[in-house]
Design a binder for these strands. Structure first.
Lengths: 349, 349
DNA sequence: CATTAGCACTCCCAGCCTACGAGTGCTAAC
DNA sequence: GTTAGCACTCGTAGGCTGGGAGTGCTAATG
């Protein structure tokens, strides 16, 4: 594509992203000094429309970028940008404050993503069900109840209160904790259960009923914790965007974002690309119907090369792609860093 | 007030609550068999308007209840209602499933409140900072890190990962746990810290630095956990209500509900009335500006006669008060029950 | 005297029209 | 290839109108 055409496409896109109004040839000629008259720009814009990069909302309005136009902009034209010092500082400060509890960390991530991007944000936390167990501990609360505690390699701490039918002595609980930890650290919960059933039954046979109950409870806990992996924030920001001033247009998107399962599924492929890969999905490129009018910027994060979750920004296709990609990338990296440090600590025994 | 007038006010309110359209005299005469003509009803309605119970949105429209009208309806006219069997069953089933983890329980409560009431819902979880400590436990994760675990009497489990400067032996950690538990169970965290500083320094003096760090971390944890006590759900339901079809009208409310601090403060007086008291606040009765066009139904819940949190439904003043009060009351009671059972278990040592 | 029928009146709303402004596309000149 | 000029298109805002819903008033009725 000719340089001047690129410049015009870039100008139209930049302008539309900031003003949310269709951009006319006059505006381009005046605001972006390309050294040509509006008539020339008109001709070029007509070409760009023929080629599918621009669209006219109606016959005699300015142009707006099509999905294809945004795609070209993101791939070729966009001038990358870093976060401002203030933004970075804020994120770092908040991460410093929350590093010792992963759920608070993720919740904070979602909130910051939303506020900085002025869009909706999604963060998928680590899955509990398939994670390796770093530690398991039984804490007696009373003679009939025990707190079952599980720490995974992705820093997740899961706990449940188990009511026991027969009282158990604290030292028994300690012994069970010890055996499970010693023999099975690094397995998933399901593997652990299998191993207990098969191999170490002899040692633990006295506690068969208790262990059964415990695994039952924990597996259910992991399951429901996985249902609650999705943190969404900034829905109000989305409503403030002019393309969503009509509730009828906003509602499908908001409803989609409120349904955790669907969001989880939609972000699944973000993870499949491996760490460090920020993915931009523009309008009709989205597989999900409800998001056809939105763009999604997502990036996976993880530990030790393995993806455990993803962060994403969801906004109108008229999105500040430069800012959003920088932001999403930075947050994903930040999360990975913290997880890595957590993991290092715990395995450095 | 004359019986017929009451009947008319009730009819207008009932009709408006279901249709969201101003109600005319003809409608009343036709749909609600009062045995009088529309002209008579017109006269009565004019009186009711003079007395401030009804309003006309514009000169020649039907009537809608004023805040005062709703107040009279709620206090005197409303026919109480119970939840349907299906609703009760659903709530009970969900509560059964979540009883072993309080945060999941509260999140679920908010979700169900929202879905059943078709309004926004708010649940305030137990405060960690002022709660009594039932149990404190140090779980070694690695030589440098320890998981600090606190269980409060309101069933809250709080945990943080503490990085230690100097490695400590697991048996030391056990010993500290034991002393803290034995001596200080039933204190708040702040009291506990004071006591450690004053009284039992001798026993624990070897661990002064560690204990300092631990209390520091825990107090911060309790603090930030208190920031995250507020669970809001059903914002989309609110958008579906006709009075909020205009985003401009909906935004202040939604923004208010998204700001946890404000919500917390606004619900503070719900707690001050003691357990079992469902509070209905209608439109302008709300102290909060943003909620002047909303009604709030709230009820506190708690353990052992002490209020620890509250549940609430927030909707337009045109709210199904009968259903909402039944629902909110039922949910608050349900939460109290579960907490009571939890508390009983743990103190029954 | 309360109730009712009848009727004029008010007001919102939807549809239609018009004027206007923004922006284009085309043509002809440079 | 670029530019100026101009006719044309289209959406939007403002004004107007007819219909409908609902009221308030008045006079008649039991």
């Amino acid at each position: 594509m000719a340089d001047r055409k690129k410049a015009i496409l870039r100008a139209v896109t930049d302008d539309y992203i900031t003003t949310a109004e269709p951009v006319g040839s006059r505006t381009i000629a005046r605001k972006y000094g390309l050294g040509v008259s509006s008539a020339t720009i008109r001709n070029e814009m007509a070409d760009l429309e023929d080629e599918g990069y621009l669209e006219q909302p109606h016959a005699s309005a300015g142009r707006i970028p099509s999905d294809k136009g945004y795609r070209f902009y993101v791939d070729t034209l966009m001038t990358g940008r870093d976060l401002t010092g203030i933004e970075e500082k804020r994120i770092r400060a908040e991460y410093e404050r929350r590093r010792d509890e992963i759920r608070a960390l993720i919740r904070t991530t979602a909130r910051m993503l939303g506020e900085i991007s002025q869009c909706a944000s999604v963060v998928v936390g680590p899955a509990a069900r398939t994670a390796e167990i770093r530690h398991i501990q039984l804490v007696p609360l009373s003679s009939e109840t025990v707190l079952v505690l599980v720490v995974t390699n992705s820093g997740l701490v899961e706990h449940r209160v188990l009511s026991m039918e027969h009282a158990m002595h604290p030292s028994d609980l300690d012994r069970i904790s010890h055996i499970l930890n010693h023999r099975l650290r690094g397995s998933t919960l399901a593997q652990m259960r299998g191993a207990v059933l098969r191999e170490i039954q002899a040692e633990l046979s006295a506690y068969a009923t208790f262990l059964d109950q415990m695994f039952e409870l924990l597996l259910a806990a992991m399951h429901s914790s996985d249902e609650e992996r999705v943190y969404v924030d900034g829905l109000m920001q989305l409503l403030a965007q002019p393309e969503f001033k009509d509730v009828g247009r906003a509602r499908p998107v908001l409803e989609f974002l409120e349904s955790d399962d669907s969001v989880l599924q939609a972000l699944a492929d973000a993870g499949s690309r491996g760490l460090g890969a920020t993915l931009v999905t523009i309008g009709s490129e989205n597989a999900v119907d409800e998001l056809q009018s939105c763009s999604v910027i997502s990036a996976p994060y993880g530990v030790a090369g393995r993806v455990v979750g993803a962060v994403a920004v969801v906004g109108p296709t008229r999105l500040d792609y430069a800012m959003a990609t920088a932001l999403v990338g930075y947050m994903a990296e930040g999360l990975s860093d913290i997880l890595a440090r957590l993991d290092l600590c715990e395995s450095g025994e």
